[in-house]
């Protein structure tokens, strides 16, 4: 898209005044955008068209996970999605699917955070060496691709298994975190962690659809992590 004017259609909903959500169109001058990302477009709308538009943002560089949203049908972070990458005449911005909308592009992530907390996302190891725990270069390398999650919820929001079983299935993000601690050579509770993921739902509702991997703005692969946990369950059970 190469244009001086962006045509944008944004999901609007303010529970205090709107009976139901609606899409609102804006035409935004490229020169009103401070940068070249979708977030710059949202800031331009807020500054030059409509200060009531509500969305979250913090870091502006794809590391805090505040501005996960649905951009032209695909989940991503507004701050690192270049406007030039978007196809079609109109840019469509919607809140993350499957979470309750608080207002406009802001969703309620309480359930998502609960899932995260339920996997005990902290290292369990009671030994206190005088210096650091030794962890070999190779052992640490296993964590690459597992620890970088920014809790933006883009994956969980695009996962069909999560849509239907939000309360029982942990969803890709929480499972990636579970995997990060299961695979950490320093953690002493591996067996208990694996045990905790047994049953029909918590982990096993994953159908391997892979949407999570396709949308992750950090290039992480929860599908693989879930697969690796399953393998480990099988191996360690024998």
């Amino acid at each position: 898209m190469n244009t001086d004017l962006y045509h944008v259609s944004v999901y609007r909903f303010n529970p205090e005044v709107d009976k139901k959500p609606y899409m609102k169109n804006y035409q935004v001058k490229a020169s009103d955008c401070k940068g070249v990302m979708v977030l710059d477009l949202l800031e331009a709308i807020k500054q030059h068209h409509d200060p009531t538009l509500s969305f979250r943002r913090s870091c502006g560089e794809g590391v805090c996970g505040s501005d996960g949203m649905n951009i032209n049908g695909k989940n991503g972070l507004a701050c690192i999605t270049p406007l030039s990458d978007l196809e079609g005449k109109v840019i469509k911005l919607r809140p993350l699917l499957s979470f309750p909308v608080v207002r406009d592009l802001i969703v309620d992530l309480s359930q998502f955070y609960k899932q995260y907390e339920s996997v005990q996302p902290y290292l369990q190891n009671d030994t206190m060496p005088a210096k650091e725990n030794v962890q070999s270069y190779e052992e640490r390398k296993v964590l690459d691709g597992l620890y970088e999650c920014i809790l933006c919820a883009c994956c969980t929001s695009s996962c069909p298994s999560s849509w239907w079983n939000m309360d029982k299935f942990l969803g890709p993000s929480a499972l990636l975190w579970a995997c990060r601690f299961i695979m950490d050579s320093r953690d002493t509770e591996t067996m208990a962690r694996l045990e905790d993921l047994q049953g029909l739902y918590r982990l096993f509702r994953c159908r391997g659809v892979g949407m999570c991997r396709d949308v992750c703005p950090k290039g992480l692969n929860p599908t693989q992590a879930i697969h690796d946990i399953r393998e480990k369950m099988l191996r360690d059970a024998v």
Binding site: M128, P129, K131, E132, V134, S136, Y137, E139, D184, D187
Partner: peptide, 20 residues
Amino acid sequence: AVYELEHMGMPFSRNQQGKI
């Protein structure tokens, strides 16, 4: 302070000796 963070689980990169 850094050892404490490591004990808490912070995933520091490692050198060939397995140290931070």
